[in-house]
């Protein structure tokens, strides 16, 4: 089983996670820019964070044969500090044109304030300027209303729903999301958001068109193997392999390929991994035996 996890915060994960994801069939990940569990106070911390998403994290992933892409954005939780938000919006110009950036995100609403809406709209304009798809985070509190409002904002700005992924859907939001022409992401979590069984039921009900599944794994209680675990639950529920492959592989590729930057060489499979050149004294491989894949 090969899969692409379209929403996972690898910066917060260990090399053990990369190892297990690779063994489970993960070929690529999309890492959206997000918050760090508490609000950042300085522009410089955003700068170094964005820099690591296009730099060091890609290098880490590559050592486990995983392609790493990211989205750049100012998340809504940190959008309420007006002065800092303006600086971050300006900084985003420095990163939105990078090869590894396949979208603007995750953006949207948290407290659903006017300040959040202003930053949300500004970033939709940036997505248009840089011709990038958009990943929208939907709020935990007052979710249904926040999701509807997010889609209304996209409509007002005039961006094609086909370029927008509404994430963290639940049974309450997915129908509207799909009916209005958006892509629908589902974050499968150990406790909150969505779980594997509910996800399988959603697929029975709605099929595979514009449906995505992700782990949204981060620094909290979360599981980077939720995509393959969800696929297994779908198999048990009798969902066809073709439908499953569409959801965990073809759909995320189709959506993020709209950036023109998702390197389709990945369709040929993972790059051959050769850790020999890296193993001595390297910070990721500390003395263990290097893994060498035979050239295909």
């Amino acid at each position: 089983m090969k899969f692409l996890d379209p929403h996972i915060h690898m910066t917060s994960r260990t090399t053990d996670d990369y190892q297990r994801m690779s063994e489970a069939g993960c070929v690529a990940v999309i890492e959206p820019a997000f918050w760090m569990g508490q609000p950042r106070k300085h522009l410089g911390t955003f700068d170094d964070y964005f820099s690591s998403l296009v730099g060091w994290e890609r290098f880490r992933a590559k050592q486990f044969s995983i392609h790493h892409f990211c989205t750049i954005g100012l998340n809504p939780k940190e959008a309420n500090n007006d002065a800092l938000a303006d600086d971050v919006l300006e900084l985003m110009h420095r990163y939105l044109e990078k090869d590894g950036v396949v979208g603007v995100g995750e953006i949207g609403f948290d407290d659903q304030t006017a300040a959040e809406e202003r930053v949300f709209i500004a970033q939709l304009e940036l997505a248009r300027e840089y011709e990038l798809p958009v990943m929208i985070h939907t709020p935990h509190r007052d979710k249904k209303r926040g999701t509807d409002r997010s889609m209304d904002v996209v409509t007002d700005v005039g961006i094609d729903p086909g370029l927008v992924l509404i994430d963290h859907n639940t049974e309450e939001t997915v129908k509207d999301t799909l009916d209005r022409g958006y892509w629908a992401g589902h974050s499968v979590y150990p406790e909150t958001k969505m779980d594997e069984s509910r996800m399988a039921e959603l697929v029975v009900q709605y099929g595979s068109e514009r449906i995505l599944v992700n782990s949204a794994a981060d620094w909290g209680v979360s599981d980077p193997l939720k995509v393959p675990k969800s696929a297994k639950k779908m198999q048990e529920r009798g969902i066809s392999e073709d439908v499953i492959e569409t959801i965990i592989w073809r759909n995320p590729i189709e959506f993020f390929s709209q950036s023109g930057r998702l390197d389709l060489a990945m369709d040929d499979g993972s790059p051959n991994r050769d850790q020999r050149e890296l193993w001595q004294g390297n910070s990721v491989l500390r003395g263990q035996s290097p893994v060498v894949d035979e050239p295909s």
């Binding site: 420095r94 044109e97 090869d99």
Partner: peptide, 16 residues
């Protein structure tokens, strides 16, 4: 200039 420096790789075709 910075924007061209970042996007020129894609403008030249496949990254590889």
């Amino acid at each position: 200039w910075a924007r061209d420096f970042s996007r020129v790789s894609r403008r030249m075709g496949r990254r590889a």
